[in-house]
Amino acid sequence: MNQHGKINYIELPCRDLAATKAFFSEAFGWGFVDYGPDYMAITDAGIDGGFYKSERCARTEQGSALVVLYSNNLEQTLQQVVAAGASVNLAIFSFPGGRRFHFIEPGGNEYAVWSE
């Protein structure tokens, strides 16, 4: 439901739309709707959003916001992410409230996955 003043949609840069689509479909079961050659919307990802074609990417080292996904089984999700083609740039580590790891997906963006 749309709510006034609440985050409603997130758009992310992407160097390779086809590779990003294949990765998130395989690793997390996300769906996509293509809107021409330079944009695709995300479905079944927990929040509405999309990817737009860009030579830039979202990385924390460049000051970007970090999209963090949740997992019921962190080790299994790590294996899925690697099998789907991501590279792990921060191995599993503990932080107050849980554990997490960071990865770079084939489109160039950095994400994290956390668990209690």
Rank of each mutant, 00 (worst) to 15 (best):
V81Y: 01
E110D: 03
A22S: 11
A45N: 02
E55M: 14
F23C: 00
P13L: 05
F28Y: 14
A58K: 04
D34K: 04
I42R: 00
L17C: 07
G46E: 08
T43W: 03
E26G: 06
I10P: 04
D16W: 02
A83W: 10
H102M: 02
A27N: 01
S71N: 07
S87W: 10
I7L: 05
Q76Y: 13
T20S: 04
G5T: 13
S54F: 10
V33S: 09
I42C: 00
F103E: 00
T77E: 05
E61Y: 14
C57G: 07
D16Q: 01
E116G: 13
Q80T: 06
A41D: 05
K6R: 13
C14T: 05
Q76H: 09
Y35T: 09
A86S: 05
L90N: 08
A22R: 05
K6C: 11
G50H: 02
W114P: 00
G97E: 08
S25L: 08
A45W: 03
P106R: 04
F28A: 07
R100D: 13
T43D: 03
N2V: 12
S54V: 06
A91W: 05
I10R: 04
W114M: 09
A84P: 00
D16Y: 04
V67C: 11
L90T: 13
N109H: 13
S94I: 14
N2Y: 15
A83G: 08
Y39D: 04
G31E: 07
F95A: 12
A18G: 05
C57F: 15
L78C: 06
Y9K: 12
A112F: 04
G5N: 08
S25W: 01
F95V: 09
Q79N: 15
A27E: 00
A45C: 12
F23Q: 00
V88F: 11
V82E: 15
K21C: 05
Y39H: 00
E55R: 14
S87A: 10
S54W: 11
P96H: 10
G85F: 01
G97V: 06
A58G: 05
G36Q: 06
M1V: 15
F24D: 01
G63W: 14
P96F: 09
D38P: 08
F51S: 01
N2S: 10
V67W: 02
I42L: 10
A83T: 12
K6F: 09
Y70I: 08
F95H: 05
R15S: 12
M40A: 02
L17Q: 02
L12I: 08
G46I: 04
E116R: 15
F28W: 04
N72I: 08
E11D: 15
A41Q: 09
A91Y: 10
N72Q: 13
L90F: 07
E116M: 12
V82Q: 08
L90Y: 08
G85E: 01
P13W: 05
H4Y: 08
R59Y: 04
R59K: 09
G85W: 01
E75H: 09
A65D: 07
G49H: 03
D44R: 06
A22T: 10
R59H: 09
L69A: 12
R99K: 14
E11F: 06
G50A: 09
E105L: 11
N89W: 00
N109F: 02
E105P: 00
D48K: 07
G31S: 06
T60R: 07
Y9Q: 11
G97Q: 15
Q3A: 10
S94G: 10
A45L: 03
D38Q: 04
A65R: 13
G5V: 09
